[in-house]
Design a protein around this nucleic acid. Structure first.
Lengths: 409, 409
DNA sequence: TCACTTTGTGCCGACTCCAAACAAAACACG
DNA sequence: CGTGTTTTGTTTGGAGTCGGCACAAAGTGA
C-alpha cells in the first residue's frame, strides 16, 4: 500500500492565513503581514510573492504617498485588480440578485435586481445563475466558486432549505443541489475546467460573515448578528472568524425566544416570540398602520420610522416597544452566548439608530453580572451584506488553501 | 534585530494531537493512531516513541489477548502507569474535594471530601490545595498543573468568580489568583522547578469538558450540558473539543431562560426562569415538601425522586412539571445552539432517567423543524466530572504542545 | 512450511520556515 | 550634500517535520 497523505491537515504553509489577512484588510503592507503572521520577513516575502504569482494579490514596491515614517517603506499589499471573482447570488422575499465579488469583499459587477416574486426554487435559481453567468461573460473574469443566500435555515450537510417561510418554497427544497446543477448547466467553470462548486447558506448567517470580515464586525472574536428582513427575525454567530451554524446548520434560530410572556400566540406553540414581536409587521401593527401591498414590509416600516418618528407619538411608542422587545431577546442571547460585539441589520438597525441608548440600556439591565451587558451594539455597515457573505462561502476554500483551491501544485 | 520566532503557531508536530487521541481513548493501538492522525506509519511510530520517552504513554509490543485479526498485531498504546498527574480541586456548596488525575481522566488518588461549608475563599482554597499537596507527597507523582472547579461563572481573562451565589463568597473573588498563590505557597512545583500554573473554571463547564473527553459526550461535535447542583441551573457548551466560554467566560448562563411565563418572579427581573423552575428546591416545592437542613438540597430531591416516584402522585406530578420546564429550556437552547448531543447532570440527570420519553418529547415538540428536536439526550456518566474537568484544564497545555509544556526542547 | 496480510522501521528527499548576514530605501542631521 | 540611523527586503544555509518507499517482522490460514 502506498502511504500517500495530505501532509497533515494544516492547509499547506502560511499561504492561507496570509491571504485571509489581505482579504480582510488587516495586512496593508508586507511589514504588517510579517508581524500578523508571526513569521520572519523572509517567509512573509516568499508568501506574498507566491500569492502575487497566483494572481490573487498585488505587491507594490513603490508606495504612492510617502508614509512619513522612518526607515525603508514597506511594500504595499492590495487585491489584484483583475483577479478571479466569486459568483454571489441571493434570493429574498422580493426577488433575487446576482453579483461578482472579488477578494476583499469588493463587488466587481452587479446584475440589475430582479423583482419578480419567486415561486419554484429551481426556476428562481436558474434565473439568478443566468444573471451571474452573464456578468461573468461580460467581465471575462475567472470564477473561483459560487455562493447563494436564501431566507431560510439551510440544513447541513444536505444543503436543503428547511423553513423558507417567507418565500413560496416548500420546506426541504434542495437548494444547494439545485444551485450546483444550475451552475453546471450554465457552463460556469473554474480554472481546472470543472464546474465550480456551489454553496448555500442562510442570508442572516452570510450577512454576519460578511460584516465580520469587511464591515462592522471586524476584529470581533464572538460576533452576534440579529436582523429582520421582511418577516421573522434571524440570528447568526461568528466564532473566531468562522460561522457557527451548529451541528446541522440550524443554530441561531432566535425567532422563538420569548420576549413578551403576555403576547399573542405564535405558530410555534409559545407566545410573544421575537419572530412576531420584533419584525416589520409588528412595528406597523404597533404603530396602528395597515401594511400596504405596494412595497416591501421592510421598506414600509423603514419609511414610517424615518419620516414620522420625530412627529407621530404612535410611531415613537411603537419604536420604543420594539426596542424593548428586541432588547429582551438580545439580553437572553448575551447570557447564553456572551458575544463581544452585536450588530443589527434590517429594521433592527433602524431601531438602533433611532434610539441607541434605550436599546443598550435594556440589554444591559437584563444581562447578568453587568459586564456582559456592556457589549457594544452596532449597526451593520455593508450594502448587500448577504450577497458579500455568499461570496465569502465561495472564497473560503481559497482562503483555507490557495494552492489546492486554484488547482496548482 | 534577531528574527526569532516560534515556528508558526501549530504546536510543534503531531505530538499534541497524538497525545489527545490516547488521552481520550481514541487510539488504543499504533495502527489506529496512524489512521486517526492521517499520517504515515513512520511518523506515527516516531510520535509514539517520543511520547513514551516523555513518560506520558506506554507502547506495548506484545499485546495480551491475541486480537484474532489477520496481519501483524499493532503495538498497544496506553497511559503510562506512573506518569505525571494534574491536581484537581473542587469547591461546592457542601465543602471541597481534591484529587490527582492522570492522563485519560483516571483518578489516581482522592482526598477524603471535606464537608465544612466554605466561608472565606482564600481559606477554602488554601485548604483544598493543602489536601492536594498531601496527595502529591504521598504518591510522589510529578505534577503538570492544577485546576479548580467553582460553582460560579469565572470571568476571563481575570479569573474572578462572578456569581458565587450558592457559596458564601462575595462576587468578584479572584479565585484563579488565590489558587495560584496557594499552589506556590504549598510548594507544588513542576519539572522545571517553577510553581505549577493554576486554572479555574465553572463546575458545570468543567463537567461538560470531562464528559466530552471521557464520558457520555465522547465524539460529540457540539455538546450541550445542562445540570443543577444545589441551587440554580448551569449550562456548558463544548465546540469541537473546546469549551465555549464566550468572550469573557460568561457564556451559557442558562438559568434565566423563561420556561414558565406565568411563573413566580425571579431576582433577575423576569419571571418563571429556569433557575427557579427546575432546580432541587423547585422540585421539593412542587412535591409539597419542606426542605430540611440535614443533607444537601440535591440529595433530598434525589432521595425523594428515587424513593417515592413510583408511589406518590405528588412526586410524580412534580417530576413531570420539572421535566416540562426543563424541556422548554432545552428546546430554546437547541434552537439557538443546535447541538448534536445533550447531557444532563445533577438532578436533571435523575429527571431524565425517571421519564426519558417525556423529556425527549417536550424537547422535540418545541424545537423547530423537527430534525434538531431529535438530538440525543443522555445522562452524565462520570463520577466527579467537575473534578476530572478541572484536571483537563491543567492537562490542556500538555495536550496542546507536550514538549513546550514539559519544558523539553 | 509457505503464502498472505498487516504493521513496524530505516532511509531519502521534499517542503517549510527560522536564522543570520547583507543590501536597499527612506529620513535626520550636520 | 554626504553620512549615519532606522526599517524593510533579499539571499543563503540549515534545522526540523513528514511523505514515499523498500524491506523486515509478526501474526493467520492452508
Amino acid at each position: 500500500m502506498t502511504q500517500t497523505r495530505t501532509r497533515l491537515e494544516r492547509g499547506r504553509s502560511a499561504l492561507g492565513p496570509a491571504l485571509a489577512l489581505v482579504h480582510t484588510g488587516r495586512a496593508p503592507t508586507r511589514a504588517v503581514l510579517t508581524a500578523e503572521l508571526g513569521v520572519t520577513r523572509a517567509t512573509a516575502g516568499a508568501v506574498a510573492a507566491e500569492l502575487e504569482a497566483l494572481g490573487l494579490i498585488q505587491v507594490d514596491s513603490r508606495p504612492l504617498g510617502a508614509a512619513g515614517a522612518q526607515g525603508r517603506p514597506s511594500h504595499r499589499l492590495s487585491i489584484a485588480p483583475h483577479g478571479p471573482v466569486a459568483l454571489a447570488a441571493q434570493v429574498h422575499a422580493d426577488g433575487f440578485r446576482a453579483a461578482l465579488v472579488g477578494l476583499g469583499g469588493q463587488t466587481v459587477a452587479t446584475a440589475p435586481g430582479c423583482m419578480t416574486v419567486p415561486a419554484d426554487p429551481a426556476h428562481v435559481i436558474d434565473a439568478v445563475v443566468e444573471a451571474g453567468a452573464r456578468l461573468l461573460r461580460e467581465t471575462g473574469r475567472r470564477c473561483v466558486g459560487a455562493g447563494l443566500a436564501v431566507p431560510s435555515a439551510v440544513a447541513e450537510p444536505e444543503g436543503t432549505a428547511l423553513n423558507p417561510l417567507h418565500i413560496a418554497w416548500s420546506a426541504g427544497a434542495p437548494v444547494r443541489e439545485l444551485f450546483s446543477r444550475s451552475l453546471a448547466a450554465a457552463g460556469i467553470r473554474g480554472d481546472d475546467g470543472e464546474p465550480v462548486t456551489g454553496f448555500a447558506g442562510n442570508d442572516v448567517n452570510l450577512a454576519a460573515l460578511a460584516e465580520h470580515r469587511h464591515g462592522a464586525g471586524g476584529g470581533a472574536q464572538h460576533l452576534l448578528c440579529v436582523a429582520t428582513g421582511h418577516r421573522g427575525v434571524g440570528g447568526a454567530l461568528v466564532l473566531d472568524g468562522r460561522l457557527h451554524t451548529g451541528s446541522a446548520g440550524l443554530a441561531l434560530e432566535v425567532g422563538h425566544l420569548t420576549v413578551n410572556p403576555e403576547g399573542p400566540p405564535c405558530h410555534c406553540g409559545s407566545r410573544g416570540c421575537l419572530d412576531i414581536e420584533a419584525d416589520p409587521l409588528a412595528f406597523l401593527a404597533a404603530a396602528g398602520r395597515e401594511p400596504g401591498p405596494e412595497v416591501s414590509l421592510l421598506q414600509q416600516a423603514r419609511d414610517l420610522l424615518r419620516e414620522e418618528y420625530a412627529t407621530a407619538a404612535s410611531v415613537r411608542a411603537a419604536t420604543e416597544q420594539l426596542i424593548d422587545r428586541l432588547g429582551l431577546g438580545l439580553a437572553g442571547l448575551v447570557n447564553i452566548l456572551n458575544p463581544d460585539r452585536i450588530i443589527l441589520g434590517g429594521l433592527h438597525r433602524e431601531l438602533l439608530e433611532a434610539d441607541p441608548e434605550r436599546l443598550r440600556a435594556v440589554v444591559a439591565e437584563r444581562s447578568l453580572w453587568g459586564r456582559s451587558g456592556g457589549v457594544p451594539i452596532l449597526p451593520c455597515t455593508l450594502d448587500h451584506n448577504s450577497l458579500v457573505g455568499a461570496a465569502e462561502l465561495a472564497w473560503q476554500p481559497v482562503l483555507d488553501d490557495p494552492l489546492a483551491a486554484l488547482g496548482v501544485g
